[in-house]
Amino acid sequence: MLEIRNLYATVEGREILNGINLIIRPGETHAIMGPNGSGKSTLANVIAGRDGYVVTDGEIRFDGKNLLEMDPETRACEGLFLAFQYPVEIPGVANLYFLKAAVNAVRKYRGETSVDAMDFWDLVHERMELVKMDESMLKRSVNEGFSGGEKKRNEVFQMAVLQPRFAVMDETDSGLDIDALKVVADGVNALRSPERGFLVITHYQRLLDYIVPDHVHVLVNGRIARSGGKELAVELEREGYALYNEEPGRARRAV
């Protein structure tokens, strides 16, 4: 469902992604691990369509459609979701209002009418229980004053309400205590289905005990240096990235 071919991208003129190839089929969950600064979030942001990330070569197709031609809201309406590594605080916009606006935007895009107030409320309640989020969070401004863990939980909550077909989760486990980690993993697992795909970016193999991936990729210097099964995560946890890192001056556009 998501096909990334030969993707090169720069940020502020710096080459960050150097030829990424990745194919994720419906129902699959892929994990990306890799050292700090290797380009994991850059890849996530390029997929989501954030300004400032310039694709210089390659393509991304989402269900066969050219993703890079779509603006961020269209990508979201097509069923793409990014759980942010650093969720943004938006003072003055209530969480619930924001979610409803998002749900209705997607419905409008699909040619559906606005969501029925009662149906929406039921959905929100059910999903809130799934991620064990407190109801008081709904009235608060989006992420404002949320703890690190609460912000991550809110990302999963939004995902659970929006029910995207493909989700990129950028370090959603970072900063979570063990219980919260399980909650987040349960949230993701509840959504897993033969039609949905996930790309999970993480530094910790622990998360992958809960969200068991089909494939694990190691991203180093903007390229996928190695791919494997879930056992690769265990190996990385043990060995670190030393193996992958000592290639200074390596030709960035090596074929």
């Binding site: 809201e73 990508r75 938006i90 003072p91």
Partner: peptide, 21 residues
């Protein structure tokens, strides 16, 4: 961007932020 990444069109996202202000 956060609002747009949830599907909210640019003009509406801006309007929401202005209203929040």
């Amino acid at each position: 961007f956060y609002l747009r990444a949830r599907g909210i069109p640019l003009a509406q996202a801006r309007a929401l932020l202005v209203h929040a202000f």
